[in-house]
Design a protein around this nucleic acid. Sequence first.
DNA 1: CGGCAAGTTGAACCGCCTCAATGACGGTGG
DNA 2: CCACCGTCATTGAGGCGGTTCAACTTGCCG
Lengths: 252, 252
Amino acid sequence: MLGKQGALKERLSRLAALSARDTDLLSRLCSRQRTVKRHADLSTDSQTDPSVFFLHEGWGARYKLFPDGRRQVLMFVLPGDIVGMNQLLVDTATESFGTMTEMRLSQAPRDAVAEAMRQRHGLALALWRSLEQEHAILAEHLASLGRRGALQRTAHLLLELRQRLMATGEGSPTDFECPLTQYELADALGLTAIHVNRVIRHLREQGLASIEHRRVTIGDPDALAAVAEFDGRFLSSGRAGLPDRVRRRLTR
Amino acid sequence: MLGKQGALKERLSRLAALSARDTDLLSRLCSRQRTVKRHADLSTDSQTDPSVFFLHEGWGARYKLFPDGRRQVLMFVLPGDIVGMNQLLVDTATESFGTMTEMRLSQAPRDAVAEAMRQRHGLALALWRSLEQEHAILAEHLASLGRRGALQRTAHLLLELRQRLMATGEGSPTDFECPLTQYELADALGLTAIHVNRVIRHLREQGLASIEHRRVTIGDPDALAAVAEFDGRFLSSGRAGLPDRVRRRLTR
DNA sequence: CGGCAAGTTGAACCGCCTCAATGACGGTGG
DNA sequence: CCACCGTCATTGAGGCGGTTCAACTTGCCG
């Protein structure tokens, strides 16, 4: 596990080169840290909270609630992720954000973040890139719900989580902690918890993956990736491959 | 119908206040216009095209293709929309973009757009806000696929399209042109064209909405919105409600 | 030990898919 | 002008994947 803000800096510096002054400003935005309980609501679509959240530790989710009480998880958010960048300017929130585990995070006013992006272009690049990655995750998730079956969808999500966790140094190619209940998985996968249970059993019986004691063990990574038709490029950190032309132009 | 670039300026100026110099720079980005045929591919996930597309006329779609040839439409794109802002920095495209009808558009290099955003902060605001709206549409679409039935989902999409078209002056509350085939609707709704057909028949029989001759007619807007549980706030233009505090800070 | 959250399993049901076929329309060439 | 063809719309019958309802079990914490 990384240090106090380790995951955040680790992830952002993989997304764009950060100078010392960039990380200084980032640290200032994250100066105050809070710890919130499991299953806490940090912002809801009714009460607009004009904040950006920087996650240091613990899992959360962005989701939408329906009139009948059901919910759809848009994406799980992990240490190093940032929540709220997609609603920096708009005045009406259209989604909610809550924790799945106890979580350590920092909270900054939206306009402080906007101002920070103006001051430090390197930081702006990293935050923009982070938003692009969110967008890609959302799109992939959407494609899963639309065109993949339950098994494929579940396998795909597990592989996505593994890859995202590894980007901040957590987990291994065959093993990571996953504090999600089957109900929470179901809300992300657009399934019933009951059916998620059966899918997981199937994955276990096939030796593809298993979940026990809040820990995912991937028995056969290649086979699982084949089942899921998983192509991790949608999560690419992107900095390494960024053409010099663009980097020069944008990085000041 | 609006003028040469009317839809684009109409939409962006609803998203943020644009000065004359902002729109000038926007016009420069859009200086060269092309017309492309129906069902043309403008960028695919294999061939990375580092461009941003500004759509003036005609319908298109962002989509993902699957190994077996099926596809999932992420969102339809309409006159005034911008495609590619979500992949301004990343080097690997993870989605495709093509036309559903003949389309008139402009195409600008990604770094030209990035540079423009640095030069004119008002324009940057509008483009950022446009990206936020895309994000909201994607999220709503994701929730539809995950937790709404075929009927609700279809009704919701029709209402979304109506509202987005009206933002650029096209269509009316009860009527708009919709050049989509049932196959294309199906690819967006995560359904089969056959089932889309049955859903549309149901909508027609209930007097809720009908589609004929590439035109959607909404028989009972309120009832349709009730069926869809449609809440248009996720599409809010947002400029009107933007707090002065933020606007002052960001608009320079 | 008691109580609640989460996991597990079975049986019946239903929404949507699959396969198959036909009909309506517009464009194209003879 | 009509025969032809491709695309899109439409409808039926049967099957499957995932839901719903209803238990029961396991594990954890007070």
